[in-house]
């Protein structure tokens, strides 16, 4: 295992070493010490690495991740795993706002709570939050799944496209065009798989499903005459 100490070296040096692994894989396991809330730790990895960050991180940790498994032993700042393409990012503490923003793929697991705008503009990522999420979560979400084992804040799924949202606790309010939908067998199956992948012990039957009413973003044929 490669140990890298951010108390004595820069984030730029760390990320450069991680990026070089995409060309030639020489070290699969990485332990990052003393992150000290620095921004952009382990951004832009494009290799099957296992990276553990031992402490709280700043903004955009594991952003643009491809293939790697990144574990944060602490809290994550704004935009953890933003624009992730694939791989797994696991936050053992809480995540700040805009977790998993615009991400296209992969799995983001937040073992604590996520604050506002979790999964904003998500485009295919799966997000599993063991705790609760703040307001405007999955705002304008296009694709992927958001699973919340705790409660959701105001305006959940506002202006939603095709993200499927599962919430076990209370939803303070639904956003524009987001509605509750029936939980069919296919959804229970999907949710069971997601919870298992995230290693979260919860019963899919305790969750409710929310999705788009498809009234906002679909072209209305009534408007055809306007063109």
């Amino acid at each position: 295992m490669m140990k890298f100490d951010l108390a004595s070296h820069s984030v730029r040096e760390l990320n450069q070493l991680l990026h070089e692994q995409a060309r030639q894989l020489t070290e699969r396991e990485w332990l990052v010490l003393n992150p000290g809330g620095a921004h952009s730790i382990a951004c832009g990895i494009d290799q099957e690495l296992s990276v553990t960050i031992d402490g709280h991180c700043g903004y955009y940790c594991a952003g643009m991740n491809k293939k790697a498994h990144v574990t944060i032993r602490g809290n994550a700042g704004v935009g953890v795993a933003e624009n992730m393409m694939s791989g797994v990012v696991r936050v053992l503490g809480d995540a700040s706002q805009s977790a998993g923003a615009t991400a296209h793929g992969g799995l983001l697991v937040i073992e604590g709570n996520a604050s506002a705008r979790c999964g904003i503009a998500m485009k295919g990522i799966d997000i599993v939050v063991k705790g609760s999420v703040g307001h405007m979560s999955a705002f304008m979400g296009q694709a992927g799944r958001l699973v919340v084992c705790g409660d959701a804040g105001d305006a959940l799924g506002d202006s939603l496209y095709e993200v499927r949202i599962y919430v076990r606790g209370k939803v303070r309010s639904l956003g524009a065009d987001c509605i509750e939908k029936p939980m069919r067998e296919e959804h229970l199956k999907e949710l069971r798989e997601l919870l298992a992948r995230a290693d979260v012990d919860a019963d899919p039957r305790d969750f409710r499903r929310y999705g788009s009413a498809r009234q906002l973003y679909n072209f209305k044929v009534d408007n055809a005459a306007a063109y």
């Binding site: 000290g36 809330g37 620095a38 921004h39 402490g55 709280h56 700043g58 903004y59 809290n75 700042g77």
Partner: peptide
């Protein structure tokens, strides 16, 4: 504003 402002405090870990 950010966690990194707190890292110099004693016992922060």
């Amino acid at each position: 504003s950010e966690y990194r402002a707190l890292t110099s405090l004693p016992g922060i870990a």
